[in-house]
């Protein structure tokens, strides 16, 4: 569907860096590479990781995007904000169908998040169309 070398490069460049969320009562540290997607839940955000775990942190999605910007390295360009409510890890995007607003995030081995089955992943058709174009452009740029 899209250029594998783009994902390979993303994976190669992605180092074992962590996103750290800490407040007075909790400390959460997640390896950025292992985040599958992050979904907004009001003032909270739910972080879904590739070990099928969910971590809820007290931060709005914009705040998390800012933390990603500040905590990760320039090479870690594998997280994408999609609309107001979602951040996905491009490393795990394995299926996009904009017409059906369908996206599947999976490592094809241990986990699979399908927005047809998982209610939390809400993506507009238009956003998925732009996402598909993004991958297509990467392929063409190659």
């Amino acid at each position: 569907m899209y250029d594998v070398s783009y994902i390979c490069n993303l994976r190669k460049n992605a180092m074992s860096r962590y996103l750290v969320f800490s407040n007075s009562s909790e400390y959460t540290r997640v390896m950025a590479q292992n985040i599958v997607y992050i979904v907004s839940a009001g003032n909270y955000s739910d972080i879904y990781t590739c070990d099928n775990k969910k971590y809820t942190v007290l931060a709005q999605l914009g705040c998390i995007e800012k933390m990603i910007t500040h905590q990760l390295d320039k090479k870690d360009q594998f997280l994408m904000r999609i609309g107001k409510c979602l951040i996905v890890n491009l490393l795990y995007v394995c299926y996009i169908n904009p017409n059906r607003a369908h996206i599947i995030l999976s490592d094809n081995r241990t986990f699979l998040f399908d927005n047809m089955n998982v209610e939390s992943i809400k993506v507009s058709q238009e956003a998925l169309k732009v996402l598909k174009e993004h991958f297509d452009n990467q392929k063409n740029n190659k």
Partner: peptide, 16 residues
Amino acid sequence: YDNIGDDEIRLIIPEG
């Protein structure tokens, strides 16, 4: 960071 529409995407580019 909240300035994004529902139909938009944005690659998050860390500043390092």
